[in-house]
């Protein structure tokens, strides 16, 4: 009731607004914008995810050595601190940009977008985004990549896909890394890892790699080259004008 004249008008009222919108809508818009940039330059973008120490940077170093004569490659590195990984990549003669997230546990589309302002895409064939080492948080944030690749090193448990189903389900490919160590490990069974992955439905393929002492990269390089060919054959999409995201 109104305090001034005693009329029946309520000073305030409540109303429920239906929204039904994704909580990450802003990130998804930024990711779509990144993807338009990538598609306009016909560059294949692969988001590499894994727990810390699974060998993402080592795999990238070996991949660069194997492919740098035929493809122009660049890398965006995500870590909480240090420029160490970008420096390792640059030592192989390809451009690398380090994003240090401070304390954030994952990259998001806006961070990648900001990095793209400092990393020219023109002339690139392949851009790797090495996400922050973490099997939980990176899974939920689309960066605009074309493919998600998750590494599972054989020094981890072979039940990782059962323990972290969200990230392994979000993968287009699972790379079993450090397989040259299988001979000296008695507790990792690749078949058990494959079974745990298959239990997540969707039929995500799993391949084996070794990046250091005795490199075994055949399946991985074959997968990458198939993806590169598919990306080049994809029709060039007309750029969409989005004034908000161009800002």
């Amino acid at each position: 009731m109104c305090n001034t004249c005693g009329c029946a008008m309520k000073p305030a009222d409540t109303v429920t607004i239906d929204v039904l919108q994704g909580l990450l809508a802003a990130n998804d818009r930024a990711a779509a914008h990144n993807r338009e940039h990538f598609d306009r330059h016909r560059v294949l973008v692969v988001n590499l995810m894994s727990s810390p120490g699974a060998g993402k940077t080592a795999l990238l170093e070996a991949t660069i050595v194997a492919l740098r004569e035929r493809y122009r490659i660049a890398v965006i590195e995500g870590d909480l601190e240090t420029d160490n990984d970008a420096a390792r990549i640059r030592a192989h003669g390809v451009p690398a940009l380090q994003i240090t997230t401070g304390s954030a546990c994952h990259l998001d589309a806006q961070l990648v977008h900001a990095a793209l302002h400092e990393l020219p895409l023109a002339g690139l064939d392949l851009l790797f985004i090495e996400n922050v080492g973490n099997l939980v948080c990176p899974a939920g944030f689309d960066l605009g990549q074309h493919r998600n690749v998750t590494l599972l090193s054989v020094t981890e448990g072979d039940d990782k896909p059962a323990k972290y189903p969200v990230i392994f389900r979000a993968s287009d490919l699972v790379v079993l890394s450090k397989t040259d160590l299988l001979d000296v490990l008695d507790d990792f069974d690749p078949a058990r890892a494959a079974t745990a992955l298959r239990a997540l439905g969707g039929g995500v393929p799993m391949i084996h790699t070794a990046a250091r002492r005795a490199p075994a990269l055949g399946e991985w390089l074959h997968w990458l080259e198939c993806e590169l060919r598919a990306r080049r054959a994809a029709p060039l999409r007309a750029p969409r004008v989005d004034a908000m995201m161009e800002a």
Binding site: C2, N3, T4, C5, M9, K10, P11, A12, D13, T14, V15, T16, I17, D18, V19, L20, Q21, G22, L23, L24, G140, R198, A199, G201, G202, G203
Partner: peptide, 28 residues
């Protein structure tokens, strides 16, 4: 069969927001 499609359980959505609206300013 392990070829399946998830039909529910991936949602991360804002469903609704209940607001207290400001009333008309009091005469005073």
């Amino acid at each position: 069969g392990y070829r399946t499609r998830v039909v529910a359980g991936e949602d991360l959505r804002l469903r609704d927001v209940e607001l207290r609206l400001a009333g008309l300013p009091e005469l005073a």
